Deep mutational scan, measured.
Amino acid sequence: MDPFVVLVLCLSCLLLLSIWRQSSGRGKLPPGPTPLPVIGNILQIDIKDVSKSLTNLSKIYGPVFTLYFGLERMVVLHGYEVVKEALIDLGEEFSGRGHFPLAERANRGFGIVFSNGKRWKEIRRFSLMTLRNFGMGKRSIEDRVQEEARCLVEELRKTKASPCDPTFILGCAPCNVICSIIFQKRFDYKDQQFLNLMEKLNENIRIVSTPWIQICNNFPTIIDYFPGTHNKLLKNLAFMESDILEKVKEHQESMDINNPRDFIDCFLIKMEKEKQNQQSEFTIENLVITAADLLGAGTETTSTTLRYALLLLLKHPEVTAKVQEEIERVIGRNRSPCMQDRGHMPYTDAVVHEVQRYIDLIPTSLPHAVTCDVKFRNYLIPKGTTILTSLTSVLHDNKEFPNPEMFDPRHFLDEGGNFKKSNYFMPFSAGKRICVGEGLARMELFLFLTFILQNFNLKSLIDPKDLDTTPVVNGFASVPPFYQLCFIPV
């Protein structure tokens, strides 16, 4: 058959498939802009700032609406009420993970971030239990974070109060905490193996944040037939998995079943207990991918939040002064901060919360999916439909947070200066898919920041009023603009 005829037939089939998918069930789905064949609503979305586009569309179609990214149908949730109703009140029905062709290629359905069903539930339950087990290797997770915080302070001392970009050092600290939990080992910041790991993690975040990856996920045929950065992403992930597998083999040879040292040991012990169960989800494949998931999810998000926190503290020296006064009063100079201190430091706690609220790190979270046909607000959402959640619409709700575009710790303080919780605080998402490392991340943010401010004054290279804190939105995360500062020993 003539190649031209084959091409026309293929394009015609794709067009018909697109029209059929977009028209099927439209009477039951939430409203939304009319999609174009094949490309859907992509032309109506700013790929570099999806969150802003969703906010604009919500003003037209309401808090629940339908979009098509290519052939992929998505239902968008915008605003606290619908997000709570879906992710919390109907948590089980909305607990699936959205379709990610690239991740599915890399992870093969294993791990904790992109798995679904029984596998996801069992691996998540085990990971939560293990991360909360403060007795691994007779050292609590808090001990590990405190140790890394001391190392971080010593690295900052080496800058000798000269101007520096904190990106690298602030990236090393949370990565080392995860390494300590998974591998029972922290690395020197100049260790070549550690630097290679950091390089792969950072490069992957840069790649994932590009519009090209959005295109690959919406048109998965590209993955096999086109060159691009997605190939580098898959190569980096394969490198990390190979490295983790080597460490798993080392653990198998040296493990003491009665004295687990780290996450890998705990997983291997669980595998041993379930070795007679042919349906067990505790396999080497799941261990390797879960460890890679924890490394990827637990490094860049925390380091970016820390980097943004220091920029905001530079911009608002009056806030920094209040935090340091609270540190001096509650902790002093002669001991290290600990998590028990947080309950006695409402202002510092409010500042950490406000940093996370203000920066809105992951504006749309990772997409969910419905696990069955769901009736939601008089609409029928078919099983498997991807759910896109606007966390921006919750964290920047102007009824809950007056002047949401302003950095103001009073958003989390009552009139008496006591810490005030808010149900709208969802930087880790909400419901059954809430970030498994939430507790660890909150511990790291509090301890790293208090250790830094206990030991250093922060000095800006320019007038604080002239510092730009506008986030650089890159399609996946909101990151701070480049800046330098000086760490002046107190």
Rank of each mutant, 00 (worst) to 15 (best):
R124A: 02
G96C: 07
V352H: 01
D293H: 05
M129R: 10
L54S: 03
K121E: 14
E93L: 11
L314R: 02
A477M: 09
P337W: 01
L87I: 07
Q324N: 10
E104N: 15
L77A: 02
R132F: 11
V8P: 07
F110R: 12
D466M: 13
E81R: 08
I123T: 11
E354A: 02
P63M: 04
P317R: 07
F412A: 00
N107S: 14
G91Q: 12
S12E: 04
F110C: 12
L90S: 09
H251Y: 01
L314P: 00
P382Q: 05
L14D: 00
F187W: 09
G70R: 00
C151Q: 11
L201V: 11
L380T: 15
S365Q: 02
F419W: 05
D414E: 08
L361K: 03
E400G: 08
Q193H: 15
V319S: 06
D165W: 01
I207S: 06
E155P: 01
N457P: 02
V490Q: 15
S18V: 11
T301I: 15
L312A: 04
S390L: 09
F69K: 08
S140L: 06
R157P: 00
V288H: 03
A430V: 12
N56E: 14
A297V: 07
L14M: 10
D89P: 04
L458P: 08
E85G: 07
P163F: 14
S254Y: 07
F114M: 13
R105S: 06
P382V: 04
C13R: 00
M406T: 15
H353M: 05
I213Q: 09
I264L: 09
A149R: 00
R139A: 11
I178Y: 03
N196G: 11
T159H: 11
G32V: 00
D349G: 05
W20C: 15
T304G: 10
Y68S: 12
L54C: 08
K275C: 10
E241K: 10
C266K: 13
L54W: 03
N41G: 01
V394D: 03
I213N: 08
K420Q: 12
V330P: 00
W20L: 13
L287M: 07
L366C: 06
S24G: 12
L268A: 04
L201Y: 07
